[in-house]
Write a protein that binds this DNA or RNA. Structure first.
Length: 563
RNA sequence: GCGCCGUUAGCUCAGCUGGAUAGAGCGUUGGUCUACGGAACCAAAGGCCAGGAGUUCGAAUCUCUUACGGCGCGCCA
């Protein structure tokens, strides 16, 4: 039940609706002051009385009883204390009856949201710079589906551009088919790095690369065969990572997919009089909007990134008729997306307002920026392997008799990688360090998973909690705080979807886990004084486990039964 | 030069549409302990919320400004 609304409906404030009053209601900083509070300072202006007097008057008029057990005017605030038993009963029955669907809704009404994330580059190994987009996009995908939207995951493959000419040039010169077949993308990476080194001394390689790229564009059979092979190798390599992270896509239409779909876009721009020649290139002038021009066609008549993104947006609108289309791409590309969205708007696409750049911060190494070409990168596969290894070592030490240690170590290790990437606001830059990802203490997924294992262990010992339970006469602070944390989950999911911030869910996990551990420490569950109290606490434990399991699942993190 | 973003405890970060004494984790110091899983819990120390001005009854939160840092700014993606 909505307590704010309940309270607001019983507060007659002249000239304000119950909704407006409800929106003013907040939570006091200290629970001993009450559970809800109405600050009366804003009302003072409307009612032309002092806040303290208003609080007193409203307090006198408020019908105490039912779910609100106490109302008190303090320094211009009107504080309410709710009937804890009633509130906790509501929370638990909600969480337990909804089960796996606790926190879910159908508010999305099946509307389609396209999510462009991960965008793997062909012939490049997956490194930690690709982690944020992948894991953020996948989390948003799940969160939106949980709320009744229909997510469409799009891996906008980076499979077009002169670098593939370079790669073919490199392969023709130093490539060894068996070697590459065996080693996969890392072998491709090696010859690519070598090509750049050699090109410094032999600029003619650049021309050769350009010629090969032209052949790709002309669909030369030999070049296309090579290119498709590179693509296949890359996807095989990256699929291992996606499987570990449990990331899925509904479409792999990438840049090359749009290579023949840009003509109509350019034509439309020209027809609408948006195109202009400048220094030999075709541009859309955006000076009126405080932005540099958006280049549509190069001097040589070929297209660019922006042109392709516009073709892609139009294609997606036509294909999926999306309600929103999200681009989970680093903030580096801020200007690029602002330009593309603006040009689409100028083209008269009313849906241009539904395009959203979900920007996140950059990853660097302690020794500076990463660079595939220079070879200073940290590959995600290595990071995941190390995390799983460490998890395995700890599990073996703490719980040597566990039969499925590999499986547990995988959930713990992979969880740590995902959680680490999702725990902070996405806009923050990240300096990668092994010390940080390999730290399993404190505010981590491991702590949350451990809490779940503890809760499950208690439930198992109880032999499956009795399905029926009733409220005890008095609710302890620890029980109440835990129940409130559990109750915050549905709104947290909504906020995470609205702001495209999965970190809100990650932080809720830690909050619930902390409150559970406090409760667990202070309140005996199995040896509670009475059976009724025991059953109530078991219900609270079940609700906690359900909440944490649902929350972690949205982030893509599994919960081992034991660890 | 212009634009976008960031700046909160020693470190890494929370802080909801402005609201009552600014919160976590790590680290430090000291405790809990025959525990329903110690991968836990408790406590202490540690803050001029980058500086300044403004709006307001009230600002870490809104506006302006300065500093520092990151990113971007026509034929790469």
């Amino acid at each position: 039940m909505d307590y704010k609304k309940y309270i607001a409906e019983r507060l007659p404030v002249e000239g304000m609706t119950a909704e407006e009053v409800a929106s003013l209601i907040a939570c006091p900083p200290d629970p001993s002051m009450g559970d809800y509070a109405l600050p009366c300072f804003k009302l003072a202006k409307v009612l032309r009385k002092s806040p303290a007097a208003i609080a007193e008057a409203l307090c006198a008029a408020f019908p105490v009883g039912g779910v609100v057990s106490k109302a008190e005017a303090v320094n211009g605030y009107l504080n309410f204390t709710v009937d804890r038993a009633a509130m906790v009963r509501d929370i638990l029955s909600e969480a337990l009856s909804k089960g796996d669907r606790y926190g879910a809704s159908d508010a999305g009404m099946g509307r389609v949201v396209c999510i462009d994330y991960s965008s793997v580059n062909i012939a490049k190994r997956f490194h930690i710079g690709h982690l944020s987009t992948t894991v953020l996009g996948a989390a948003i995908y799940r969160i939106l589906n949980f709320l009744g939207y229909k997510s469409v995951g799009i891996n906008h493959l980076g499979d077009y551009g002169t670098q593939f000419g370079k790669l073919i040039s490199a392969y023709k010169r130093w490539g060894n088919r068996e070697e590459i077949e065996k080693q996969g993308v890392s072998a491709l990476n090696d010859i690519y790095v070598r090509w750049h080194k050699e090109a410094e001394a032999h600029p003619e390689l650049e021309d050769e690369a350009r010629a090969y790229f032209k052949k790709i564009e002309e669909k030369d059979p030999e070049c296309m065969a090579l290119f498709d092979w590179f693509k296949e190798l890359t996807m095989k390599d990256v699929q291992k990572i996606y499987d570990l992270l449990d990331v899925r896509f509904d479409s792999y239409a990438g840049e090359s997919f749009y290579s023949d779909k840009m003509g109509p876009v350019v034509e439309e721009l020209r027809e609408k009089g948006l195109l202009r020649e400048s220094q030999g290139a075709q541009i859309v002038d955006l000076e009126a909007y405080g932005m540099p021009p958006c280049i549509i066609l190069k001097k040589d008549g070929t297209s660019l990134y922006a042109t392709r993104d516009m073709a892609a947006a139009i294609y997606r609108k036509n294909t999926y008729d999306f309600y929103k289309c999200l681009y989970v791409v680093a903030y580096q590309q801020n200007l690029h997306f602002r330009q593309v969205f603006k040009v689409l708007e100028l083209m008269g696409k009313p849906w241009a307002k539904d395009l959203v750049h979900v920007a996140y911060g950059m990853v660097s190494l302690e020794e500076g920026a990463m660079s595939t070409r220079k070879g200073n990168v940290v590959f995600l596969e290595d990071v995941i392997d190390k995390c799983i290894e460490k998890a395995y070592a700890i599990v073996s030490e703490k719980n040597p008799d566990l039969e499925n240690k590999e499986e547990v170590a995988k959930k713990v290790g992979v969880g740590a990688v995902i959680f680490g990437a999702l725990y902070n606001s996405k806009i923050k830059d990240i300096v990668f360090s092994y010390d940080k990802v390999l730290n399993f203490e404190g505010e981590t997924s491991v702590y949350v998973q451990y809490t779940c294992a503890r809760a499950r262990s208690v439930l198992q010992k109880a032999g499956g909690a009795a399905a029926d339970w009733e409220m005890p006469a008095a609710i302890a602070d620890e029980e109440f705080e835990l129940a409130k944390a559990v109750a915050a989950f549905p709104d947290t999911v909504l906020a995470a979807a609205e702001k495209y911030e999965p970190c809100l869910i990650a932080r809720l996990c830690v909050d619930v886990a902390q409150k559970f551990n406090k409760f667990y420490f202070d309140c005996k569950i199995l040896s509670a004084e009475t059976d009724a109290l025991k059953n109530f606490r078991l219900a609270l434990t079940r609700a906690t486990l359900q909440t944490l399991t649902n929350a972690l699942a949205l982030l893509g993190i599994g919960v081992p039964e034991k660890m």
